Amino acid sequence: MNLIQLKERLKILAENNVISFRSAELTTQAFTQLQQAWHTDNIPNSEMLFTHLSTAITRIERGEEIGAPMPGILTEIKTSKYYSEVVQQVNFIESLYGSNLPAEELDYLMIHYTNVYQQNEGGSNE
Rank of each mutant, 00 (worst) to 15 (best):
L74G: 09
S95L: 14
Q5F: 04
E94V: 07
F31W: 06
Q5K: 09
I19Q: 02
A30W: 01
I4V: 13
T75G: 13
R62D: 12
Q29V: 06
N16D: 04
E61V: 05
L10Q: 06
Y97E: 10
Q5R: 07
P71M: 06
N17K: 12
W38E: 01
G67F: 12
S20M: 04
A68Q: 14
I19G: 05
R22S: 10
S54K: 11
A14M: 01
I93S: 06
E94K: 12
Y82Q: 09
S84M: 13
R62C: 08
S80D: 05
R22G: 00
K7V: 08
A30R: 08
T51G: 09
G63R: 10
S23F: 02
T28D: 05
I57S: 00
T75L: 14
N16E: 06
F50V: 06
R22V: 07
I19F: 00
T75A: 15
E94Q: 12
E8T: 13
N17S: 13
P44K: 04
G67T: 13
I60T: 11
A68E: 14
D41L: 11
P44W: 01
K7A: 05
A37F: 09
E64H: 11
A56P: 05
T51M: 09
Y82A: 10
A37E: 15
K78S: 11
Y82M: 02
Q29W: 03
